[in-house]
Simulated scan of single mutants.
Amino acid sequence: MPTGVALRDPRRQLFEAAERVLLRDGPSALTSRAVTTEADCAKGVLHRHFPDFDAFLAALVLDRVARLDTTSAGLLAAVGQGTVVGNLTEALTEILGPVAVAVVGLTVSRDGLRALLRETRPTGVPLLSDATEVLACYLAAERELGRLSPAADVDALAPTLIGAGHLLLADRTGTAPDAEALRRVVAGVVGASLACPPGNRPAPGEHPGSL
């Protein structure tokens, strides 16, 4: 007799089940059996949709990458609005959410998964490198608008923001830092590159990132 329940959208429900296992138990606990048990479906469902478990995991990673399109659209819509530091802080909070950080850890920990991803993505860490491109595009748009210094090196600032943000947010078991802690990190990275419009210079001792 078949076990489990029928899935209306098997791929999506399997991805969501895998994310729950990742968040609850970590990358080492993620197996095909754990995923199908979490999804409450027959064990064969996963292998009907994916050649093997690494192929499933690669699709899971790329699904998270695809979600960056929404973040990118939101950031570009915010160009010239609010503050650069505020926009970046909000974007990093979304980009480096608990599931995304867990997916990065999964990628780093599984040789077979990395090898499969490298067939189409030969450089960088998937998700982190894609997020870096998202931030670089936003920073370039703000530089063109004049809210960043013309000398701002967006190709250096973007990976620095991703690296610093990931270091701050990567501890899956610890207490999550508050938004202010991340904002301070962002301000520290981009503060020197922010353009100060005439008549709106920071007061003595005030960090330009508050503008």
Rank of each mutant, 00 (worst) to 15 (best):
Met1Gly: 10
Arg8Gly: 08
Asp9Gln: 15
Arg12Thr: 12
Ala17Leu: 04
Val21Gln: 11
Leu23Arg: 15
Arg24Thr: 14
Ser28Asp: 15
Ala34Ser: 15
Ala34Phe: 04
Ala42His: 15
Lys43Trp: 08
Lys43Pro: 12
Lys43His: 14
Pro51Ala: 14
Asp52His: 08
Phe53Ala: 02
Leu57Lys: 14
Leu60Trp: 03
Leu62Gly: 01
Asp63Cys: 02
Asp63Gly: 02
Val65Asn: 00
Ala66Arg: 15
Ala73Ser: 13
Asn87Val: 02
Leu88Met: 08
Leu88Trp: 06
Leu92Tyr: 13
Pro98Phe: 00
Val99Tyr: 01
Ala100Gln: 12
Ala100Leu: 03
Ala100Val: 07
Thr107Arg: 04
Ser109Leu: 11
Asp111Ile: 06
Leu113Gln: 10
Leu117Gly: 00
Arg118Lys: 09
Thr120Asn: 03
Leu128Ala: 06
Glu133Ala: 13
Leu135Ala: 00
Leu135Gln: 05
Cys137Gln: 15
Leu139Ser: 07
Leu145Gly: 09
Asp155Cys: 00
Ala156Gly: 00
Leu157Tyr: 02
Ala158Tyr: 10
Ala158Ile: 10
His166Gly: 09
Leu167Met: 07
Leu169Asn: 06
Leu169Gly: 06
Arg172Tyr: 06
Ala176Asp: 08
Arg184Asp: 05
Arg184Tyr: 05
Ala192Ser: 07
Ser193Arg: 02
Leu194Arg: 02
Cys196Leu: 10
Gly199Asn: 02
Pro204Gln: 04
Glu206Asn: 01
His207Lys: 12
His207Glu: 09
